[in-house]
């Protein structure tokens, strides 16, 4: 099987949504949809699974929280306990209230940065990465649906033309 795809272009998000539903109902495989802005409900219409990135943020936050406790316990209590302002640092639990602000900040720091890094890695976003949108207009006002060609190509093209597309292109991937 060739890696042929049909790129159907739409100029409206509502037409695109209807088209996505029709194409899925007709059992064609949508490889990808490129849109200039987040179209709400598109991921569900395409049958994409929900993202688990919020769960990773929670885990990263927990790591940051535990790390901050370990760090402050090691630096303030274990390695070199001092008597600062008549408040000796011999017990973590007794000194803990003073550590709360930094526990909080480290939790947020880890959760936010590691989640964003995870997002960039998973979505392949980094400096010097080449953009992969098939047409420059997809960041302006055009919506592109890529449907893989399986079986009769001409039939698929005429089917897609009926979904309200404004431009259609067959390319090798």
């Amino acid at each position: 099987m060739s890696n042929k795809v049909i790129q159907a272009m739409y100029n409206d998000d509502d037409i695109l949504m209807d088209a996505v539903k029709e194409v899925r109902a007709a059992n064609h495989h949508i490889q990808e949809v490129y849109t200039p802005f987040p179209v709400h409900g598109l991921d569900k219409a395409m049958g994409l699974k929900g993202t688990r990135i919020a769960i990773t943020a929670f885990i990263y936050g927990c790591i940051g929280f535990v790390f901050s406790i370990w760090m402050m316990n090691y630096m303030m209590i274990e390695q070199w306990p001092q008597d600062i302002g008549g408040k000796p640092s011999f017990s973590f639990i007794q000194n803990m209230p003073a550590f709360v602000p930094i526990m909080f900040e480290m939790t947020v720091f880890f959760a936010a940065h590691l989640m964003v890094i995870t997002f960039y890695m998973r979505s392949k976003l980094w400096p010097f990465k080449e953009a992969e949108n098939p047409d420059p207009r997809t960041t302006d006002d055009m919506f592109v649906m890529e449907v893989s060609v399986e079986g009769n190509e001409a039939e698929l093209v005429s089917f897609l033309e009926k979904t309200g597309t404004v431009e259609i292109k067959v390319t090798e991937k």
Binding site: V33, L42, L48, I53, S123, K124
Partner: peptide, 22 residues
């Protein structure tokens, strides 16, 4: 500067979730 942003449906889904969590 755009880190190769392409606007895939999956990217937008993650983008919105990341914005909400941030």
């Amino acid at each position: 500067l755009s880190f190769g942003w392409s606007g895939r449906a999956k990217d937008w889904q993650r983008f919105e979730e990341v914005s909400l969590v941030l």
